[in-house]
């Protein structure tokens, strides 16, 4: 997994609430058996016409946002299906950070497994960043994971909370499975004890 330390860049504004994973990556693209290559279909139904041409009004099709690395989104981003194809598609497009007031649980977790930082901020602060995002190239936002802060275009700093373990893994690009495997003795012990107390499992 790629590390996440700091980024500074253009943020795409997506003020809609309840953006679900079906919108982020519609199901017809879930038939892949790979993790890569989903970026072109990110937000497919919002982004393209039926004939495959781009909808010029959609934010990621506007010249200013074609290389956006951050999305500032309305509340409850990533709700719906558990598909990890959603963060895979975001990552493949080049999005490394999402900023919103809230996320659906599974999506939130899935981001961390893929080097994407989902930041939660209060509504007033998200509103400031949304305004920045609307300005496109003229307002770059900086995100610093180590310091746990977002810096708006005018220099205003917003602190955010993050689980220390998730932060550690993201900063160092650590693979969860490897870490858990180091705890094999605990798992062995638990399994032996469970086999005695709940043998029917």
């Amino acid at each position: 997994m790629e590390k996440f330390t700091k980024i500074t860049g253009v943020a795409a504004p997506m003020p809609l609430v309840n953006i679900d994973t079906d919108m982020i990556i519609p199901k017809q693209f879930l038939k892949t058996i790979k993790r890569s290559g989903l970026g072109v279909n990110l937000f497919d139904e919002m982004r393209y016409n039926d004939d495959g041409t781009e909808k010029p009004d959609f934010v990621l099709n506007k010249p200013a946002y074609r290389k956006a690395e951050i999305i500032v989104a309305g509340e409850n981003f990533g709700c719906g299906s558990s598909r990890e194809h959603a963060p895979w598609a975001l990552l493949d497009f080049g999005i490394r950070c999402v900023i919103s007031t809230s996320y659906a649980d599974i999506f939130y977790n899935n981001c961390f497994k893929n080097g994407i930082l989902p930041i939660v901020l209060p509504a007033e602060q998200v509103a400031v960043l949304m305004e920045d995002a609307e300005k496109g190239q003229n307002a770059r936002i900086s995100v610093d994971l180590e310091a746990q802060q977002v810096t708006a275009a005018d220099g205003e700093v917003f602190k955010f909370e993050i689980d220390p373990f998730k932060k550690h893994c993201l900063l160092n690009g650590l693979d969860d499975i490897g870490l858990t495997m180091n705890k094999a003795t605990s798992i062995d012990k638990f399994e032996a004890q469970a086999a005695a107390t709940r043998p029917w499992v």
């Binding site: 993790r35 558990s82 990890e84 977790n109 899935n110 969860d176 858990t180």
Partner: peptide, 12 residues
């Protein structure tokens, strides 16, 4: 769970 977690559960 997501697919990375599926892999995690399969392995551990």
């Amino acid at each position: 769970i997501g697919t990375s977690e599926v892999e995690h559960v399969l392995a551990t």
